[in-house]
Amino acid sequence: MSRTFIVADDHPLFRGALKEILASLADSVTVEASDFDDAAAALTAHPDADLMLLDLAMPGNGGLSGLAVLRAEHPGVPIAIVSGSDDAVVIARALELGASGFIPKSASLDVIRDGIGRLLAGDVFLPEGFTPPSEPDPELSSIADRLRRLTPQQTRVLAMLARGLLNKQIAYELDVSEATVKAHVSAILQKLGVDSRTQAVILLGKLGWSQ
């Protein structure tokens, strides 16, 4: 049976390499995305995809914020990170937000192929030698737990707040009323345990989210 994969990366050559690896591992259809909006649209169009490979630094992704949004909206699709960074803290935070694995772009094609194969088998793949931070940060764990309480739409609104968008702009992008956005913002602040939009964005910064 044919599988569906989504490769979300802004570098065409790297997308091509990943597509070839996926084709060698399974009878498959690979959907490509070059920015976060395309990646989100691809997941919406293929909600039963077998795997997404997501570049953290892709335009519009906002670092870990994009991962959090996609995981909230499509909890059943495994999403593995491909990144030019193999920083242990970033890897640990990605796993906390629901990533199925982390593949460094600096790895050889053989290692990437092995990693993807293990992901398709249902395993978690991490860089060789990865050691999680010795002492989990209780504050970061608490923030991640609170983020997981948000609904998919609230997570998307929060990501837009982190981009500095006003309620009017968020309403336009989501095609909802400004009153609906205000209700979402109020619920977000309550679930995160903060009093203002600024404090909410500061929390995201602590978890490694970026604009």
Score class of each variant (00 low, 15 high):
Asp86Tyr: 11
Ala179Thr: 13
Phe130Gly: 02
Ala107Lys: 04
Val176Thr: 07
Val89Gln: 11
Lys105Met: 08
Leu95Ala: 00
Ala159Pro: 02
Glu128Trp: 04
Asp87Phe: 05
Ile143Ser: 01
Leu165Gln: 14
Leu192Glu: 06
Pro138Lys: 01
Ala80Asp: 09
Leu147Lys: 01
Ala183Tyr: 05
Leu192His: 11
Ser141Met: 13
Gln169Glu: 15
Asp87Asn: 14
Ile143Phe: 14
Gly164Met: 12
Val111Ala: 15
Gly117Phe: 02
Ala187Cys: 02
Gly129Ala: 11
Glu173Arg: 15
Gly76Val: 08
Thr151Asn: 01
Asp123His: 14
Phe130Met: 11
Pro132Gln: 11
Ala159Lys: 10
Asp175Lys: 10
Lys191Ser: 11
Pro133Leu: 03
Val124Pro: 09
Leu161Phe: 12
Leu97Phe: 09
Asp175Ala: 14
Val89Tyr: 10
Leu120Thr: 01
Gln190Leu: 13
Gly115Asp: 12
Asp114Asn: 13
Gly129Trp: 14
Leu120Cys: 06
Val77Gly: 01
Ile116His: 10
Asp110Gly: 12
Leu166Trp: 09
Met160Asn: 13
Gln190Gly: 05
Leu126Tyr: 08
Pro138Leu: 06
Pro136His: 13
Lys105Cys: 03
Gln153Arg: 15
Leu161Trp: 08
Asp86Met: 15
Arg93Ile: 03
Gly101Glu: 00
Ala171Phe: 08
Val176Cys: 13
Pro104Arg: 08
Lys182Tyr: 09
Leu150Ala: 05
Leu140Tyr: 03
Pro75Gln: 11
Tyr172Gln: 14
Pro132Arg: 13
Leu147Asn: 03
Leu140Phe: 02
Lys105His: 06
Val77Asp: 00
Ala80Arg: 10
Arg156Thr: 12
Pro78Val: 01
Ser134Phe: 09
